[in-house]
């Protein structure tokens, strides 16, 4: 793995996504309070924090799934008003989930092909016939999907219903489905939760490869500090919905507030 904070991507500079003063509450519960940070093009950005810190809520805001009461979000320099998940997806934001959210009744291929839905254009009429443009389009996208399958080394399970796959492979298929969207920004919600060391190392390698090979910007939530420190270029730390630190892994891990948040402070 790379040395922590080796500067990859940090110099890229251009801001891909900016989160400014975002607050989100559900009724009386404040999930996120006045959080600002940015994600730069080409970097791996980690969002960490103790349980209930608002990390997943943050991803849901970026996705357009939750609408924050305050603050603004700009993706590719475009400030978003109220935005539907559909718009976020068509702008190039893809996502994996903390609890695997695959389409359980479908095969691996179909799951990843479903990720290409936005790129497929042939109309209802041709879909009914499944010949001509519809078939050509299907083949063309199948080729792309096969590349992803090769990349993730899941050739052997391409025809299996994903519900029957072991957890580690399901996580991999889910990554594949997100990659099929050819996203500019890939959000990974605990991609390594519940994995053993070997699976974690595999997944880390895939994340780095995605970042290097496709140049995809990645924002990930992860609890394994070793992984976070190794993978990410910059880290933002949340606690009780507030941002308490932001910087390179080295800076963040030396921050007293972060240490307090994770280890607790005597009262």
């Amino acid at each position: 793995m790379r040395a922590p904070g080796d500067g990859h991507g940090t110099t890229a500079g251009e801001v891909l996504l900016a989160v400014e003063g975002v607050s989100l509450s559900f009724g009386g519960v404040k999930a996120i309070t006045d959080v600002s940070f940015d994600i730069r093009k080409g970097e791996i950005r980690a969002i960490i924090g103790p349980n209930g810190a608002g990390k997943t809520s943050m991803l849901n805001v970026i996705n357009g799934f939750y609408h924050p009461q305050q603050g603004r979000i700009a993706f590719k320099g475009e400030t978003r008003k109220r935005m539907r998940p559909y718009v976020a997806a068509s702008q190039g934001i893809a996502r994996t989930f903390q609890n695997v959210a695959l389409f359980k009744g479908m095969s691996t291929i179909d799951n990843i092909m479903a990720g290409r839905t936005l790129k497929m254009k042939t109309g209802f009429f041709w879909q009914c016939l499944r010949h001509g443009p519809a078939l050509n389009e299907e083949i063309e996208h199948r080729k792309f999907v096969e590349e992803i399958i090769d990349f993730l080394e899941i050739q052997a399970i391409r025809k299996m219903p994903v519900g029957k796959l072991p957890y580690g492979l399901q996580k991999r298929v889910e990554l594949g489905r997100a990659l099929a969207m050819q996203p500019d920004l890939l959000l990974l919600d605990e991609p390594m939760a519940g994995m053993n060391l070997e699976e974690k190392e595999d997944m880390s390698r895939f994340i780095i490869d995605v970042n290097n090979q496709y140049g995809t910007t990645i924002a990930l939530i992860e609890h394994d500090m070793g992984v976070v420190m190794d993978l990410s270029d910059r880290v933002v730390v949340l606690e009780y919905g507030r941002k308490i630190a932001d910087g390179t892994p080295a800076e963040v891990s030396a921050d007293q507030k972060v240490i307090d948040a994770y280890l607790g402070v005597p009262h």
Binding site: N63, F65, P85, Y86, A88, A89, S90, A94, R95, F97, A101, L102, F103, K104, G105, M106, D110, A114, G115, T117, L118, R177, M181
Partner: peptide, 14 residues
């Protein structure tokens, strides 16, 4: 089928 199996994931995929 995506809507049937996991509507949230389907929605976030566009």
């Amino acid at each position: 089928m995506a809507v049937r199996d996991m509507d949230i994931a389907a929605e976030l995929m566009g």
